[in-house]
């Protein structure tokens, strides 16, 4: 069942208090604590390294701007994530309005990408893992933003439903259905992609 909201992290609380008092080092401490998680989430959402870097930087600049108004009613990390998600979704909507451009190279893991041979050395296993990850990321990219955000926050960031609801600004029931729907779509996408790869590898009769 729904767990109680996590207690505010005392380190966060102290860093926030000092940062609000104008201590740049405290703000740097907050950045240092969460930049990897924010960056990772941004990357999984937009699947573009440079864009994820830009977004991460933008998130913390926005945090810096808004920090004086942060009253501690929400968990700091949840608050940061809410800012991140707002920026991410806004940016993605903006990108979708742009003229589409074709990638210069095919995305790794896109359907039809061949997998390594069956006989695996350690290196081959590593390649196989990378390709598997690429396929999962490819499938993730196919989801609508609302489903992607839900499964990223749950399965990659391991947040509970209540926190995700707070971050996304939707009821817990909506989170529940989005996560389930997102996983089902991913399951189907990966199954379809697997079928396509197998068909491509089957030699013609």
């Amino acid at each position: 069942m729904n767990r109680p909201a996590p207690e505010p992290d005392p380190i966060d609380a102290e860093l926030v208090r000092r940062a609000q008092g104008g201590d740049p080092a405290a703000f740097a401490g907050l950045v240092s604590r969460y930049q990897d998680r924010v960056f990772n989430t941004c990357y999984r959402m937009c699947h573009h390294h440079a864009d994820a870097l830009d977004l991460t930087q933008a998130v913390f600049l926005r945090v810096l701007e808004a920090l004086p108004r942060y009253r501690g009613t929400a968990n700091f990390f949840t608050w940061v994530y809410r800012i991140a998600m707002n920026l991410l979704l806004t940016e993605r909507r903006r990108q979708q309005r742009r003229r589409p451009t074709l990638p210069l190279e095919p995305s790794p893991g896109s359907p039809g990408t061949a997998e390594p041979a069956a006989h695996e050395s350690d290196g081959a296993a590593m390649v196989r893992q990378q390709e598997l990850a690429a396929r999962v990321q490819w499938a993730l990219d196919q989801l609508d933003d609302e489903f992607r955000a839900a499964v990223v926050l749950k399965d990659i960031e391991d947040l509970d439903y209540a926190s995700i609801a707070e971050i996304l600004g939707v009821p817990v029931g909506t989170v529940k259905s989005r996560i389930h729907r997102g996983r089902v779509l991913l399951r189907d996408l990966l199954a379809e992609e697997r079928t396509a790869v197998d068909a491509a590898r089957t030699p013609p009769a």
Partner: peptide
């Protein structure tokens, strides 16, 4: 999904943002 590699932000981002602060 949980097994996807965790990415790390470049360290320099902290310095740049600390400078902004």
């Amino acid at each position: 999904l949980a097994a996807l590699p965790r990415l790390q932000a470049p360290d320099a981002i902290t310095a740049a943002l600390a400078r902004a602060a």
